[in-house]
Simulated assay, not measured.
Amino acid sequence: MFCSFMLKQLTKVQPLSSSCNEHLLQELSCEESSVYIGGFNITNNTDLTQTFYPFSSTRKPKVQSLGPQKTGEYGTDYLLYNTSQDGFAPALYKIDDPGGDYEFYTNAGNTDIRGIGPM
């Protein structure tokens, strides 16, 4: 798995002091380790909590939620999300810029995703 490889490399580059748990970095999830390996940011610019599934060919979908005006960082290629605010209408969004900034926004009563300028 890509995350595990990167974490092992980080352990070699930045050895942990003897007072730290030597396995600390290996216990991080892929989402937590994205701080070290980078990823795209997405901000929830809607009035509702957005629940979605980021995934890629090397990372299984895992449910995530962002409250209104919150931002999260993810290292995946796709987002599966619900466009309907009062039903279920799933949509798949491909991340074009893996280091870019994106937002959930409301468009004619539905939730959409778009790339945005620097945050």
Rank of each mutant, 00 (worst) to 15 (best):
F2M: 07
F2H: 07
F2L: 11
C3K: 12
S4V: 09
M6Q: 10
L7W: 00
Q9A: 14
L10A: 15
K12I: 03
V13C: 01
V13I: 11
Q14P: 00
Q14L: 14
P15V: 02
P15Y: 03
S18Y: 08
S18Q: 13
S19Y: 14
E22M: 06
H23Q: 12
E27Q: 14
L28T: 05
S29E: 10
C30Y: 09
C30L: 01
S33Q: 05
Y36P: 00
I37M: 12
G38E: 12
G39S: 07
F40M: 06
F40G: 04
F40E: 08
N41R: 15
I42V: 12
N45I: 00
N45E: 12
T46I: 09
D47P: 00
Q50L: 04
T51M: 08
T51I: 12
T51P: 00
Y53A: 02
Y53K: 02
F55T: 06
S57T: 12
P61Y: 04
V63A: 11
G67R: 06
G67T: 04
P68L: 02
Q69V: 03
Q69L: 12
K70R: 10
K70Q: 10
T71A: 04
E73D: 00
G75P: 07
T76A: 09
Y78T: 03
Y78A: 05
L79Y: 14
L79E: 02
L80C: 06
T83Q: 15
T83P: 00
Q85P: 00
D86Q: 12
G87H: 10
G87R: 07
A89D: 12
A91E: 11
L92Q: 10
Y93A: 04
K94Y: 08
D96F: 01
D97L: 02
G99P: 00
G99C: 04
D101C: 12
Y102W: 03
F104Q: 06
T106N: 10
N107V: 05
G109A: 05
G109D: 08
N110V: 01
D112G: 01
D112A: 15
D112Y: 14
D112V: 02
I113A: 07
I113Y: 08
I113H: 08
I113K: 05
G115I: 05
M119A: 11
